[in-house]
Design a binder for these strands. Structure first.
Length: 260
DNA sequence: AATGACTACAACCGCCTTGAT
DNA sequence: AATCAAGGCGGTTGTAGTCAT
């Protein structure tokens, strides 16, 4: 006897969310706040299970999300936190405002793991990869040992490497955090725009209640108009919190269930 | 230009935790 | 204390996009 499914799966839609579904979910959450995810799909008119709605919202639609690759600072922070916390992605994510556990987990698996292995560090233990398994070490040593003492015993050198790696975690540049999309080169924008292509929601298509959206021209100089998930898009959510001319309400405070 | 391999990430699945009764 | 429902979490999968040949 297994666990009961989280919801009646019959007739429920799976797979990528459409722009129409996103609109419904966003409109619903902005109107009603987050509460009782199981009831959300029914009330919002979605053929999804509540869990799927929650995931879509928390990982993709939430207004306070940053988009784009993690900055060097964020990446180092993730490494540092992972060394302390292990695969507790939600705990790690709680230290990186605007990042989701899913995003960090994905970034870890696709980027950071490889990076650490290249450096000769076991991504799981955060210790130098052991000699027996260490076909990568020559690489590592050539890059790090040459300036120090090539004749050092292996464990001393490894300790140095570990220290270096850890130092890189703490020697962070605060300015890299201020604009995470910048430091990650052009691939960052292409990366996020590629995901934008899979969800081609146009910003101006959305129907949000109780406040006015800026027009695409107001928000960007991009001649093509802004796509919903353009890198700069989420910074535009800032006006939900405070808008200088005062025409837009401080929306967050009015969200019933503490949306953010 | 076609196609196969690789990469990145959104989404799903199933287990765990928590709170209410 | 036991049970159940709901939300949360981490691992895994599916697929679209990109690159190399």
């Amino acid at each position: 006897m297994g666990r009961q499914p989280c919801c009646e799966k019959v007739g429920l839609k799976k797979g990528p969310w459409t722009s129409e579904e996103d609109k419904k979910l966003i409109n619903f959450i902005l109107t009603n706040g987050q509460c009782c995810w199981r009831a959300v799909p029914k009330l919002a008119g979605l053929l999804r299970c509540g869990k799927s709605c929650r995931l879509r919202w928390t990982n993709y639609l939430r207004p306070d999300l940053k988009r784009g690759l993690l900055s060097d600072f964020e990446e180092n922070l993730v490494i540092d936190l992972h060394a302390q916390l292990g695969n507790r992605w939600s705990k790690i994510a709680s230290h990186l405002p605007g990042r989701t556990d899913n995003e960090i987990k994905n970034h870890w698996n696709t980027h950071i793991k490889k990076k650490l292995r290249k450096m000769g560090i076991d991504p799981q233990t955060h210790k130098p990869i052991s000699i027996s398994t260490d076909s990568l070490q020559p690489n590592l040593h050539s890059s790090l040992e040459t300036e120090t003492s090539p004749n050092l015993p292996i464990n001393v050198t490894e300790t140095k490497e570990l220290e270096q790696a850890m130092t890189s975690v703490t020697n962070v540049k605060p300015e890299t955090l201020s604009n995470p999309c910048v430091s990650s080169s052009s691939s960052s924008s292409s990366s996020s725009s590629s995901s934008s292509n899979s969800n081609p929601i146009r910003f101006e298509d959305l129907e949000f209640p109780d406040f006015e959206w800026l027009s695409s021209n107001d928000m960007t100089n991009n001649d093509n108009g802004i796509e919903f998930w353009e890198d700069d898009y989420f910074s535009s959510w800032d006006f939900l919190v405070g808008h200088e001319d005062g025409e837009v309400p401080i929306f967050q405070e009015s969200w019933p269930c503490g949306l953010i």
